[in-house]
């Protein structure tokens, strides 16, 4: 019933790379958690998993759409990445509108004195008693990179699974399963909040890489053995 061949090895490698991209991508997304929801910390005011799931699922949708017209892996992965980037950017920009026009706070980071991209000073804009608010330029750029990596990773997993079992529903849900495991493990690594690549917590990426590598490998081995049925 279980046949192991060279192709399966390739699919496992694709799943592992996908898992790694998801795990690293989570570190780029500015997640502020509950404090950010009250505009008392920089980032989008929700949890890592919700953001990763939101952008990842959009990435899967766009990857699936592309997969219905072509089986070119590069096109599918790019399509997934763009879908996830659009979703995370929409989330961040609407979040920023709420912070700026609704709450009335300027987006700024508390982790750096000068925004690495715009070179604008940050401390004068931080309200006393808070650790920044909104999504400043550097976090926005970082989040877009996170969407790129997460979406590419998710669609790579989807592509590998589709090549094995050919069942879109099964592959999609499997990709989500592998996606959330990697996203949650990565978010434990940053303890739930991060501002983006300029955040000191970003230096913890190697640990997440190790964990996601091993976890995706184990899950990948089981995933490639599942058939499309019938």
């Amino acid at each position: 019933m279980i046949a192991f061949d060279a192709n399966m090895l390739l699919y496992i490698i694709e799943i592992v790379i996908g898992g790694l991209l998801v795990g690293v991508g989570v570190h780029f997304v500015p997640v502020g958690g509950a404090p950010a929801a009250m505009a008392q910390a920089t980032g989008v005011g929700t949890g890592t998993v919700q953001l990763a799931a939101g952008s990842g699922l959009t990435g899967l949708l766009s990857a699936g759409l592309m997969m219905s017209v072509t089986d070119n892996m590069l096109m599918i992965v790019i399509s997934g990445a763009v879908g996830a980037m659009i979703m995370i950017d929409a989330t961040m920009i609407v979040g920023n509108w709420v912070y700026i026009y609704g709450v009335g706070v300027p987006p700024c980071s508390a982790k750096v004195d000068y925004d690495p991209i715009t070179k604008e000073p940050q401390p004068p804009y931080i309200s006393p008693g808070t650790v920044g608010h909104g999504i400043p330029t550097v976090s926005f750029v970082s989040g877009t990179i996170g969407g790129l990596l997460g979406g590419a990773g998710g669609s790579l997993i989807y592509y590998a699974l589709m090549s094995i079992n050919g069942n879109p529903g099964l592959s999609g849900f499997f990709a989500i399963g592998i996606f959330v495991v990697n996203a949650v493990v990565a978010s434990y690594n940053i303890q739930g909040t991060i501002e983006g690549f300029h955040d000191p917590k970003f230096k913890r990426v190697p640990r997440a890489v190790q964990v996601c590598l091993v976890a995706s490998l184990v899950i990948g081995i089981f995933a490639v053995l599942i058939t499309g049925g019938a």
Partner: peptide
């Protein structure tokens, strides 16, 4: 640190 939903997912 990541909220309760993460572990359920």
């Amino acid at each position: 640190g990541t909220g309760v939903p993460s572990i359920g997912l």
